[in-house]
Design a protein around this nucleic acid. Sequence first.
DNA 1: ACCTGAACACCGTTCAAGT
DNA 2: ACCTGAACACCGTTCAAGT
Lengths: 195, 195
Amino acid sequence: MRADARKNRDHLLAVAGTAVTEQGVDVSLRDIARRAGVGLATLLRHYPTREALLEALLHTSFDELTARAGELETSTSPEEALVSWLRDCVAWTTEYRGVTVLMAAAIEDTESALHASCVTLRAAGARLLTRAQAAGTARTDIDGTDLFALTAALAWLGDQPSLAPRADRLFDVVASAILTGPARTATEKTPPPVP
Amino acid sequence: MRADARKNRDHLLAVAGTAVTEQGVDVSLRDIARRAGVGLATLLRHYPTREALLEALLHTSFDELTARAGELETSTSPEEALVSWLRDCVAWTTEYRGVTVLMAAAIEDTESALHASCVTLRAAGARLLTRAQAAGTARTDIDGTDLFALTAALAWLGDQPSLAPRADRLFDVVASAILTGPARTATEKTPPPVP
DNA sequence: ACCTGAACACCGTTCAAGT
DNA sequence: ACCTGAACACCGTTCAAGT
């Protein structure tokens, strides 16, 4: 890549970072190009879609979240690791308003530039979930995709200004559902008291 | 209102109903006007905002959901009434793709044409929740707004094509969290076995 | 009273023409 | 190689001019 192209590319990414933080992932691409002092067409040649631009912007974060899951897997109890990682994920999305909708779309769209990162993230969560299930501290009737969906729903709550104040506590509500297992019915045994 | 204006108004609403069902609440207003054979400005004079148009389109549904809550309140057990009403709400939103985001925005925006309907809906849910809480079958650390938020999050899941297949089961997961109370900690007593 | 076309300021996409 | 302005087909908003 030519030096001037590299410079444009890097500068665009820096400007995009600011713009997305300020205005969310739906920010006008034209606006980003304008702020970066290049033509819109130049932005689109470097990053052909909004998803491609965001992937470049977020892939470090995705990597960090995945790595974090790996650390927690060996350093903390299965239950604690799962919940604290999910909390990290939700907290991270709040920095990028609107990213949850794009991630939900990307998880099943193999054409999306965000697809691979989302799949990796789901797999990291699935490992933590499986571990907690094996330890008997997470309900066994959900899988990694369910976990991804629940986390996305909680992240979406945090994205809605009117509902965001409740997001933290509702995280606990949903987390309790993941951890305490399915509702007991009359035909099931009540578990023994916790010592 | 003049007869021709009334006719335009009614016809616009009918066309909007079809368009919204087909394309979701973000459908182009210009497209609706075009399909109705009137100018876009005419549509906007009858319904000055997208929310106003949707309010006209949905207020019957809102009324029905509210009435349904009233019926369930006297005809069914508190637990059953709450869950089945929430299920009805989520099922209803799936008919109008994207409506959840607008409702989340409207619940705290007193200027929105959808505000009153959303507040009424939240109040209906709050009554069912309070009743279940009084009966000891719903956790007591959430209120009507929390319930609205959780329902919105589940409705949002149903709106995402990639996550929608999980929406029904995840509804049960979240419902179990509402019904079984907060996660038991080591310092709490385990409830007695269900007979 | 009611309707409408047109102007406006946006959006993302595309591409021929420049350096 | 790389960049860009301009044309394109959209969007919702606004309003002067028509009937």
